[in-house]
Design a binder for these strands. Structure first.
Lengths: 377, 377
DNA sequence: ATGAAAGCGCTAACAC
DNA sequence: GTGTTAGCGCTTTCAT
């Protein structure tokens, strides 16, 4: 039965029938159910003699048996797969999140699947593919209203979801994020403490309402307000979230803002590098002519010139906690917090011009639940 | 039947039974088989009246029906999923490959799944999870012998495979790769043509035999040989494939090589940035004191200072062609070539010191099948 | 043009 | 302890 010789040149590779639990059962001289029992191991009681167990295991190994996932998923009504929908893979920020997520998932017997979705349309498509129960749950960023609606719809269908780097849209959709507001505040406050008063902000240009951006921006304005510096719309510029986008945004900032800023707070470290490029191109030195603080803490910040002062995020923890929260949900445990907000830290390097004051100082915000923002000054 | 009220506080979310094709059939007043027929559309003939078709479609939409993937996969013996196993996601190089792969796959009705595997062990694990027929095929890099063996084993089980950025290990496992040898040759030749004779190479330190590294290295030595420059082992340094690893490798290179090199060919652009960092730290200017050529062509090379001269890879094409080759295999078509080798191009920017000669020159290698290497000088 | 019926390979409840 | 049995939801002949 199992020997179906590939006849002639008919091609169509004829996917040689895989070995099933039946084959193993035959080889071991037991019933198919026993094979299943043995292979699914410690189902509470070990109700199977160690002798048959060994025989089954041996037969399975000899035949190279691997259970058919589709059948198992169908029967179990679960796939042990979770999906991560991320805005982009261009930014190594997410690479770190993915690796941490994968490690955390694997530790609990789950596999992750990554879906890059660079815009709202792509995100909606990625979410749409989750409807067919190919996954037990997912992590997505919130962003636009349409995306939130689709997330709610999937949750209504029984999928579990966690929102990453955005606010919790619903009681049964927890969120795990970094304290971006505190980060914006810390970055701006640092520049203010260095004597700057004309501080620009270069942000992502995403068209729809976007919490990660608003949070940074809120922190920026809170710091200005605390220092009694009026917010000036002319000092805000947006561009595509990339090196080139930031370079262009900086160019247009300097062309149109009248009196130029003496300092810039960038949306993330990649954009900060684009900012440096334009500044340098205009003959401006960083930090002497313009001070700069990035955001993220990705590895490259230490290797460009000048080295980037930045707001460091707990990227590993972000990925890990998102997965842990999701798996708790999937396994029926109710997560400890609806919103988990991770603290950030200021890393002082060269680009802010404070190098003489202190090198590689690290200042962290407090861990917090969902109470009002407060940072250690 | 479908209304199972979540009773009391018994928790265990009770995953409300999803709507099945039976439900749709009932709502539309047809048999379940007809629903399947309608939804799977143009199965050759359209043997279904447009009236019932409309009724089924309407019912499906009203109920928000989505076919159960597990059941479908079980029945079809295929998942329409392919897996991409990549060494890392840290390097934006792979982000581009992934996006291209995803686009190509989607165009043909397939979904991709990404598995980062930073070392041999992780790669073997990732491959092992493919045994359970959760995927129709995969793209992996070759690397170590153990990995190749596992790839062969999976292919023997009926999975389809394509090797990325390595040589084809077997007639039925095609490879799609960039012409790394020609790239190494081009980079080195460029430095030679600028007058350099002491040219170092900073490479990835991967422990096992590694074609991508050997290919670059072969190109490097071919160029030296052609110019009559003896190869000097002291000018080869290896480090972890990262900014920090390259920085460390450069440090040790300068500490131990006796007379220092006047030029460096780096393994990739990320490592090139690490090289610049160390050079700058030692008070050496790039390109004035040491000329540098990177490899890859990733976006950041244009935004660091000095801008990186590099060997540009067709990253989008690499991802796309790998997927197309794999899908051909899955669909029973025999791919046109066993080895597809994509040409690379030299992009001259600042780090090589040729800026005065010509700015942003681009020189490309010829497209080739599997014939001996040859580059246009 | 439509329906009935037979599984795909597995898990789990229940019998012995 | 081990085997029997009943499906999970779908695709796909084969009748009608």
């Amino acid at each position: 039965v199992n020997t179906r010789i590939r006849k002639g040149r008919s091609a169509r590779p004829a996917a040689k029938r895989a070995v099933t639990s039946h084959d193993v059962a035959n080889a071991a001289g037991v019933s198919q159910a026993t094979v299943s029992l043995v292979l699914n191991g410690a189902r509470g009681n070990i109700r199977v003699s160690s002798m048959t167990r060994d025989r089954v295991l041996a037969a399975a190994a000899a035949l190279g048996y691997a259970p058919n996932q589709a059948a198992r998923n169908l029967r179990r009504r679960s796939t042990k797969v979770i999906t991560l929908i991320l805005p982009t893979l261009d930014n190594p920020y997410f690479a770190e999140v993915v690796v941490a997520a994968q490690t955390a998932a694997r530790a609990r017997g789950f596999t992750i699947q990554v879906s890059p979705a660079r815009d709202e349309q792509a995100e909606l498509e990625a979410l749409a593919t989750l409807r067919g129960s190919g996954t037990d749950g997912f992590v997505a960023s919130g962003r636009s209203g349409a995306v939130i609606d689709e997330i709610r719809e999937l949750v209504a269908r029984g999928l579990k979801a966690v929102v990453l780097q955005d606010h919790s849209p619903d009681t049964d959709i927890p969120s795990v994020r970094v304290d971006l507001e505190a980060g914006g505040y810390l970055a701006t406050m640092h520049l203010i403490s260095l004597g700057h008063r004309r501080i620009a902000h270069i942000a992502d240009e995403l068209p729809y309402s976007n919490r990660p951006r608003e949070d940074r921006f809120d922190g920026y304005r809170r710091a200005l307000a605390e220092a009694g510096i009026p917010y000036q719309p002319a000092l805000l510029a947006t561009g595509h979230n990339s090196f080139a986008g930031a370079a262009a945004a900086t160019e247009s900032l300097f062309r149109s803002c009248g009196e130029p800023p003496t300092a810039i707070f960038a949306y993330n470290d990649q954009m900060a590098i684009g900012v440096v490029h334009t500044l340098t191109g205009r003959g401006l030195r960083v930090p002497d002519d313009v001070a700069l603080v990035g955001f993220d803490g990705i590895a490259i910040g230490k290797f460009v010139s000048p080295e980037l002062t930045t707001i460091d995020h707990p990227r590993e923890e972000l990925g890990r906690r998102a997965i842990e929260t999701l798996l708790d949900l999937i396994e029926g445990k109710r997560p400890a917090r609806r919103e988990l907000v991770l603290p950030v830290g200021l890393v002082v390097r060269q680009s802010c011009g404070a190098a003489s004051h202190a090198s590689a100082t690290i200042q962290r915000t407090r861990d917090r639940k969902a109470d009002p923002l407060r940072t250690r000054k």
